[in-house]
């Protein structure tokens, strides 16, 4: 199991477009990927659009993204890169 941390800087938090990018990226990997907002109980399966959007991630939130599986490392790297280039 691997975990990365990510700070949300986008004014609108994880809105529709970035949520779409996260989910479509996560779906490419076999690993189970979970997103949690640090310091809260809010978690979501990164492969589920409504769950990701439903977390209501806002600017300034710190995310812990955890992946478990054979391609966990690669999945996290790619996710981080995609989130970054989406301006999240």
């Amino acid at each position: 199991m691997q975990t990365i941390e990510y700070n949300i800087q986008d004014e609108n938090g994880i809105h529709a477009r970035p949520a779409g990018i996260i989910v479509s990226t996560a779906k490419k990997y076999k690993s189970a990927i979970t997103i949690r907002i640090s310091g809260t109980e809010k978690t979501a399966d990164a492969k589920k659009l409504f769950a990701v959007m439903g977390m209501g991630v806002t600017k300034g939130d710190r995310l812990q993204i955890t992946a478990e599986g054979e391609d966990a490392g690669e999945a996290l790297m790619k996710l981080e890169a995609e989130m970054r280039s989406a301006g999240l």
């Binding site: 609108n12 938090g13 809105h15 529709a16 959007m53 209501g56 806002t58």
Partner: peptide, 8 residues
């Protein structure tokens, strides 16, 4: 909470 998400 977010008006942006409500708009979805």
């Amino acid at each position: 909470d977010s008006p942006y998400m409500q708009a979805r």
